[in-house]
Design a binder for these strands. Structure first.
Length: 672
RNA sequence: GCCACUGUGGCUCAGGGGUAGAGCGACGCCUUGGUAAGGCGUAGGUCGCGAGUUCAAUUCUCGCCAGUGGCUCCA
């Protein structure tokens, strides 16, 4: 019996008998109620049952910790798979990892419905109550292949990841086991507080050409309380959802008779968009951008030249075919399938709803000779584009089929790229910081060296990727470099935010493009008297007005700062005899360009306030005898704070200053 | 596009083989009320669309459309 030295989290060193388990060490340090789910031994996650044979460092992993939660989720995924295997003997488990906020498990099995989830949950509860011990068992590759002879998915993993002659581990609980490296909770009884949340299809290994699997999602928490807390959070998040708020506040409307993914901006939403566009336009002016306007369609040949039509044909609205050619096809007895082929082959003439603004802007560039003195040329347009997004993808304002980019194309010399990128990024920064959007991540999308989808010369790609990296560094924000995330024509810098449900959306983007100038043979006269090829930068700091507004609605939970708010001032009168004064105020504010909503009805003041609150006005003016007699207003904020007896003129000058400064609650934060 | 679920007045939702109900909102009357629902009344629905089964379909079946959660895709 030999002694080993164990370094604890506190840096103390204890001596134990070799063969002691991680659990015993942790219990020795923290007592029986240590709240640990697993251990970290020499930095490696281990089961609590792990036997310690040599000198090492030991630390407990608390269940509530991020690490602990992932282990809990992972174990619960196993529990789910066990329940499914018992209820559906033909189901073949594939993989089931923990993910942010929960876990999922993919099965090759018959399709099941939501009711079946409840049955599976019951089975899982039953297995929890059985208090099954979760055990780690070492297996050779041969043994694993034998265990999984009926499961081609597991066999695929075994063959790929586990070398011949070596082995791996399975984790068993009761009669059931799963190929897994662990670690896991000690017993199924640790997994009582779970809920299966949804069901979907998924492709084996995420590849559309592979077999479709049934994916079951769930969540699990160490206590009933935490599970309930999470469910409460989710239902609160729903109230913040831009689709819910958009309806409540009448910001936009989507009508199935207009078309899927086509946004109708109603007056209130339109006022938000208008303010944002004015804001960005003024910033663009400061950076010497030139505003242009271009049509919503362009000839197919234009998009053949740009490459968009052939490359993205599946995700565009079908072309608008010329009448003449249609007639000719009809006379020739062209069948539908022949027509489809002609479209595929590009043998048709007509127009395309523009999927991108760049070709139009390029034609503006090349509409006259350019010299190096003209560069950089920055052409900006709120350009509306149309893309045939997959029907299952369309969602609210964040994924739509017609959207307006705050687009611009910068035509510059190669030596200007980095400065131009910096200018673009500063624009994004100004916008995000003005709106208080701090929770974004920056992604530098690079090419995937193994993929063939990218066009252009390697050395140009390298230069452009370096320029993006350097520009991103200037942001002083952490960024990730992601191979395979580049556009097919060049690298890019994306700004990504999360919505209330935790889904990520790309907003702003800055992309370097050597490809289109080449395709359209763009030129400028250099100082050397020779012709040169400019480089293009595509950039859209908002991304699209639709998506940005959707995200912004959630960011503010509908409570927009005064400069953006669809209703900037609401007015409610105590009784009808105050209507005249109310009208007068509304008129004065309206003339000053302030957006006002009123309620002068005969309802009680409490009711009027309640109703007006649905519009989420930053300020509600209450008008009664006091105010009328003294030319005052009483101001009620959305936070219910109150300032009474403010002279009307003072309120007007204060709110105008607040709006102009784009500050929230400037000088008008009501006293507590 | 794929899988699951959902679709009932403007909104939120109940109901369910015998052609529909509530609350809020709207409108009208009463009330003239000081800070998150005063009272009474009225209007408003081919129960997403189209077929089928049935004596009878909003309810059951099928197809389509749209929405929701995922998967895949995203210039």
């Amino acid at each position: 019996m030999s002694l080993i030295s164990v370094i604890l989290e506190t840096n103390e060193v204890n001596e134990y008998v070799s063969g002691i388990t991680a659990a015993e060490v942790i219990t020795d340090i923290h007592g029986k109620k240590h709240g640990c789910i697993a251990a970290r031994i020499n930095g490696i996650q281990r089961d609590l049952s792990y036997e310690i044979l040599e000198d090492c460092e030991v630390a407990g992993i608390k269940t509530e910790s991020e690490e602990g939660m992932y282990i809990l989720r992972h174990s619960c995924a196993h529990l789910l798979a066990q329940a499914v295997s018992e209820l559906y003997p033909n189901a073949k488990p594939t993989i089931g990892p923990p993910v942010e906020n929960g876990f999922y498990y993919d099965f090759a099995m018959e399709n099941i419905g939501e009711d079946d989830l409840r049955t599976i949950e019951k089975k899982m509860e039953e297995l929890c109550r059985k208090n099954l011990k979760v055990e780690r068992i070492e297996c050779t590759q041969e043994k694993l292949k034998e265990l999984y002879q009926d499961n081609p998915y597991k066999l695929e993993i075994i063959n790929e990841r586990i070398g011949e002659g070596s082995g791996s581990t399975i984790y068993s609980q009761g009669d059931w086991y799963d190929l897994c490296l662990g670690p896991h909770v000690p017993s199924t009884s640790n997994l009582m507080h779970f809920k299966l949340t949804s069901i979907s299809s998924a492709y084996w290994r995420g590849d559309q050409s592979n077999e479709q699997l049934v994916r079951i999602y769930g969540m699990v928490y160490p206590s009933k309380h935490l599970l309930k807390e999470r469910l409460r959070q989710l239902s609160e998040a729903k109230l913040r959802d831009h689709r819910v708020i958009g309806k409540d506040m009448q910001l936009f409307h989507i009508d199935e008779t207009v078309g899927q993914g086509l946004i109708l901006w109603t007056p209130r939403g339109a006022s938000i968009r208008q303010e944002l566009q004015s804001f960005i336009s003024s910033e663009l002016h400061k950076q010497f951008y030139k505003q242009v306007f271009t049509p919503h369609i362009g000839k197919l040949d234009l998009y053949r030249a740009s490459g968009h039509f052939p490359y993205y044909q599946e995700s565009q609205y079908p072309p608008l075919i010329n009448h003449e050619q249609m007639k000719k096809f009809a006379n020739d007895g062209c069948s539908c399938s022949e027509l489809a082929n002609k479209m595929q082959e590009g043998e048709i003439e007509g127009y395309l709803l523009k999927p991108m603004n760049c070709p139009h802007h390029i034609k503006i560039y090349s509409s006259q000779p350019r010299s190096y003195r003209d560069l950089p040329l920055r052409l900006a347009e709120f350009g509306t584009v149309y893309r045939w997004e997959q029907s299952g993808e369309i969602s609210g304002m964040t994924r739509v089929r017609g959207f307006t980019q705050d687009d611009a194309h910068l035509f510059c010399r190669e030596d200007q790229i980095e400065d131009e990128l910096l200018g673009c990024l500063s624009l994004v920064k100004i916008i995000f910081s003005t709106l208080g959007m701090e929770n974004y991540r920056v992604r530098v999308g690079l090419r995937d060296p193994d993929s063939s989808k990218y066009v252009g010369l390697e050395n140009l790609w390298d230069a452009a990727e370096n320029a993006c990296r350097n520009a991103a560094k200037s942001l002083d924000v952490e960024f990730s470099e992601e191979p395979g995330e580049a556009a097919f024509y060049g690298p890019k810098i994306d700004f990504v935010v999360k919505d209330v449900l935790g889904r990520e959306w790309q907003l702003g983007t800055v992309q370097v493009d050597y490809n289109l100038p080449e395709r359209f043979d763009l030129q400028y006269a250099g100082s050397d008297g020779k012709m040169h090829r400019p480089v293009m930068i595509h950039r859209a700091p908002f991304g699209s007005m639709e998506r940005f507004c959707g995200v912004l609605i959630e960011h503010f939970a509908g409570k927009f700062p005064t400069w953006l708010s669809p209703t900037q001032v609401a007015i409610a009168t105590i009784s009808e005899k105050h209507s005249e004064y109310g009208e007068m105020i509304a008129e004065r504010l309206h003339v000053l360009g302030i957006r006002v909503d009123t309620d002068f009805s005969d309802a009680t003041i409490g009711k009027k306030i309640k109703n007006l609150r649905k519009l989420k006005p930053p300020y509600t003016l209450i008008i009664g005898d006091e105010e009328v007699n003294n030319s005052q207003v009483s101001i009620r904020g959305l936070n219910n704070a109150q300032r009474n007896g403010i002279p009307l003129e003072q309120f007007i000058s204060e709110i105008i200053e607040e709006i102009n400064s784009k500050n929230k609650n400037y000088n008008l934060t009501p006293k507590e």
